[in-house]
Amino acid sequence: MIPLGAYLMVSAALFVIGAFGALARKSAVAILIGLELMFNAALLNAVAFWRYLHPQGFDGTVFAIVILAVAAAEVAVGLALFIAVYRRFGTAEADEIALLRG
């Protein structure tokens, strides 16, 4: 059977790649894609831990379901914001929008 560490490695790789994307990309959609990658990494982690450490329980699965729901919500709101921002500023480049500047 595939060791848990393999899953964790894949997950870590996805997470790091997603983090890089979220940090380095210009486009807001691309940042969102990066974030989705990180969510997936977390999801994979959760499922892997459930399967290997506690297959009789429900915690891991429920955790995964909640992550799914949060991801869906996040993406919906994020994209809505994206569209609204695009309408208002005519651009969706995250580094050009600095309204929160102190």
Binding site: A22, L23, A94, I97, A98, L99, G102
Partner: peptide
């Protein structure tokens, strides 16, 4: 106090994320 910390409030989401990570 706020003035001190103003410098890091760039308003860019990615900065915040970067710092957090």
């Amino acid at each position: 106090f706020g003035r001190l910390f103003r410098a890091i409030q760039s308003g860019r989401v990615q900065h915040y994320m970067l710092v957090a990570l």
